[in-house]
Amino acid sequence: MRKLLSAVTAVVASVSLVSCGLGTGGGFTPSGELAGEVSEIDLDGLNIAVGSKNFTEQILLGKIAVVLFQSAGANVNDLTNIPGSTSSRQAQITGDVDFGFEYTGTAWITYLGETDPIPDEQAQYEAVRDADLAQNDLVWLPPAPMNNTYSMAVTRENAEEYGLETLGDIAKLPPEKQTYCVEGEFNARNDGFGPMLEAYELTPPDSGRLSIVDTGAIYAAIDGGTCTMGEVFLTDGRIPALDLVALDDPRSFFPKYNMAPVIDREVLEEYPQIADLLQPITEDLTNERMQELNARVDVAGEDYADVAYEYLVELGVVE
């Protein structure tokens, strides 16, 4: 019944999400014709709702999916830019969203409630894939090489002056220099700020040395000296753009956050060619490639949909 009414429910889902305060992307997203190795794939007749969370990389990945599905002939409901991991996940669990790009570490720790990350990337992916299929009828297609895990970053000047290479080196800093900028979700996560300090035996900062700021403002805060260290994602384009140094995690505290396409099982069973359509994307997206795409939005100020479309054209899967 959900399949027969998918076109109607897509509209209802969009209205429901907005009425619940979940602002979504929408707007015009360009499309073309499929090309290259995916040129023969046809998704005519498919109605699919694409979701994403509300930070740059997620919106950009969501728009890549929107462009790709539209170019393959699908009718796409653009529900990108849903605020927060919890809301985005709930939309997919309830069937309001059929497809999104997700991270293995987020699913394992935050969604599936596990406490111990699996250090091996492939083993972590397989554990998430098997659990989410069994529990939620969600299919995890093969992951990308990119690992959008957390770290703390410092300016190159501070890294060189104090010999900062790893998270454990934070202890080398004078107490007054141990200042942090993090966003609210990271501060509350069980794979976030407090547990990280504990894992590296670092002294928790008092309130005067901890600033809770929006994710997008952290990079400028580090660069401008508001704080010595700030929470970053390793695929963020502002790390190379601002010449920041992301500290290594030798104790493997942070889970692996490999990105993978996640899709409703019924949708994939009806349109199995979706797996082949997405394969060139996941094979291409390394940390460096994702940094470049993210920087086009966060540094150069380009539009998400334009960057997504031009990426797919450059990759040779859309023309």
Rank of each mutant, 00 (worst) to 15 (best):
R2Q: 12
A7M: 13
T9N: 12
A13S: 15
L17Q: 01
V18I: 11
C20T: 08
G21R: 00
G21W: 01
L22A: 02
T24S: 00
T24H: 00
G25A: 01
G25N: 00
G27E: 00
G27N: 01
F28E: 06
A35I: 01
G36Q: 01
G36V: 07
S39R: 10
I41L: 05
I41R: 02
D44M: 06
G45A: 07
G45P: 05
G45R: 05
I48E: 03
A49L: 00
A49I: 06
S52R: 03
N54T: 01
F55Q: 09
A65G: 11
L68Q: 09
L68F: 12
L68A: 11
A72M: 13
V76T: 10
D78A: 09
D78K: 02
L79V: 01
T80S: 01
N81I: 00
S88F: 01
R89W: 15
Q90W: 13
D96G: 03
D96M: 12
V97S: 01
Y103M: 11
T106W: 08
A107S: 10
W108L: 15
I109W: 03
E114H: 13
E114P: 02
I118R: 04
A123S: 06
Q124T: 13
V128C: 06
R129F: 03
D130L: 05
A131T: 09
L133E: 07
A134Y: 01
A134K: 09
Q135G: 00
V139I: 12
P143N: 05
P143L: 05
M146P: 02
N147P: 01
T149S: 12
V154M: 04
E161M: 08
L164R: 07
E165A: 13
L167E: 10
L167P: 08
P175Q: 11
K177N: 14
K177T: 10
V182K: 08
E183G: 05
E185G: 05
E185I: 13
F186L: 07
R189V: 03
F193I: 06
G194Y: 11
G194L: 12
P195T: 04
P204V: 07
D206I: 08
S207C: 08
S207A: 15
G208H: 11
S211F: 14
V213P: 09
V213F: 12
D214A: 15
T215N: 15
T215L: 15
G216D: 14
G216F: 14
A217L: 15
A220L: 13
I222S: 05
D223V: 05
G224F: 14
T226G: 09
M229I: 10
L234K: 06
L234V: 04
D236Y: 02
D236P: 02
D236R: 02
A241Y: 05
D243A: 09
V245G: 10
D249E: 07
Y257F: 15
M259V: 15
M259C: 12
A260H: 07
P261D: 13
E266F: 10
V267L: 06
L268P: 03
E270G: 04
Y271Q: 07
I274H: 05
D276T: 10
D276S: 12
Q279G: 08
Q279E: 15
P280K: 09
L285K: 06
T286S: 14
E288W: 09
M290F: 13
Q291H: 07
N294L: 09
N294Y: 04
A295I: 10
D298C: 12
D298L: 15
V299Q: 07
G301C: 06
E302Y: 03
D303H: 09
Y304E: 02
Y304L: 09
D306T: 15
L312V: 10
L312C: 06
V313M: 05
E314T: 08
L315P: 04
